[in-house]
Computed example of a mutant assay.
Amino acid sequence: MKVYRIKVNGKAYEVEVELVENKEGNLTETSRRDDIVSNAIKSDKIEGNGEIVKAPMQGSILSIKVSKGNRVSKGDVLLILEAMKMENEILSPVSGVVSDIFVSEGKNVNNQDVLLVIS
């Protein structure tokens, strides 16, 4: 645990920060991906022709049935989301190619989090 002193509008505050998870990778890559997801959420599309698949509920990703670059048809199972001890199949809303995956197995997601994109 680290303690930092932060000044906001001339007033000093002490903040304790605990490292909860180490993340590997380049921060720039993470920031770029966050920007892509943020823009995708706003438009429900990526680069004008991508379909965003969002989590229909809060839960945990049990398994991912597709990989980046896979061709999928409308109705294909993309991943399994566990919510309230029930396994829910997340189906493809369109036919296309999986252009990006924003989750991994074991990750917890919130309702409306972006899971993947189909172009």
Score class of each variant (00 low, 15 high):
K11N: 09
V17F: 11
D35N: 14
D35T: 09
Q58D: 10
V114W: 13
A12R: 04
P93F: 09
I90Y: 03
M1G: 07
R5Q: 03
K107V: 10
V66C: 02
D34Y: 12
M57H: 00
V103R: 04
I64F: 03
S73Q: 10
N26D: 06
V77E: 10
S31T: 01
I90N: 06
S31F: 07
I101H: 12
D76G: 08
S43D: 14
S38G: 15
N49Y: 01
I6D: 04
S92H: 06
V17P: 00
S92F: 04
K85H: 09
M84C: 15
S119L: 14
A40C: 15
S99M: 07
D34A: 10
E18C: 05
S73D: 09
G106D: 01
I118E: 02
K54V: 13
K65N: 10
N26V: 06
K85C: 01
K107F: 08
V94T: 09
E14W: 10
D34T: 14
S119K: 11
P56N: 02
E21Q: 11
K23R: 09
N26C: 03
N110D: 15
Y13F: 15
V20Q: 06
I64P: 00
V72A: 03
G96E: 03
I61L: 04
K45W: 10
M57S: 11
K74H: 00
L116C: 14
D113V: 15
L19T: 11
V17Q: 04
P93R: 02
S92C: 13
I61Q: 06
I46H: 11
V72I: 08
I41K: 13
G48W: 13
N110H: 02
M86E: 01
G75D: 06
D100C: 01
G48Q: 10
K65I: 01
E87S: 11
S38D: 13
Q58K: 13
V98C: 00
N9C: 05
N9W: 08
K54S: 11
N108L: 11
I52K: 03
N22K: 12
E21R: 04
V97I: 14
M1D: 00
N9I: 02
K7F: 07
G50P: 05
A40V: 10
K107S: 14
K74L: 06
I52D: 07
N108I: 15
E89V: 00
E105V: 08
D113E: 15
K74W: 00
T28D: 13
I61C: 05
R32C: 01
V15C: 07
V97A: 02
G10V: 01
D113H: 14
I41M: 07
N108V: 06
G75Q: 05
P56D: 01
V117T: 07
N39V: 03
L27Q: 07
Y4E: 07
V15M: 06
N39I: 13
V114Q: 11
V66L: 09
L115M: 11
M84P: 13
E21D: 09
A55L: 14
D76M: 03
E24L: 13
V15D: 00
A55D: 04
L79G: 06
K68W: 12
G48L: 10
S31E: 03
P56W: 08
G25Q: 04
N49L: 11
I36D: 02
I6H: 05
N88V: 09
V72Q: 04
T28K: 13
V109L: 03
F102E: 08
E16V: 10
N70F: 05
K23Q: 02
N22R: 12
D76L: 08
V8H: 04
Y4N: 02
A83Y: 08
M57D: 04
K54M: 08
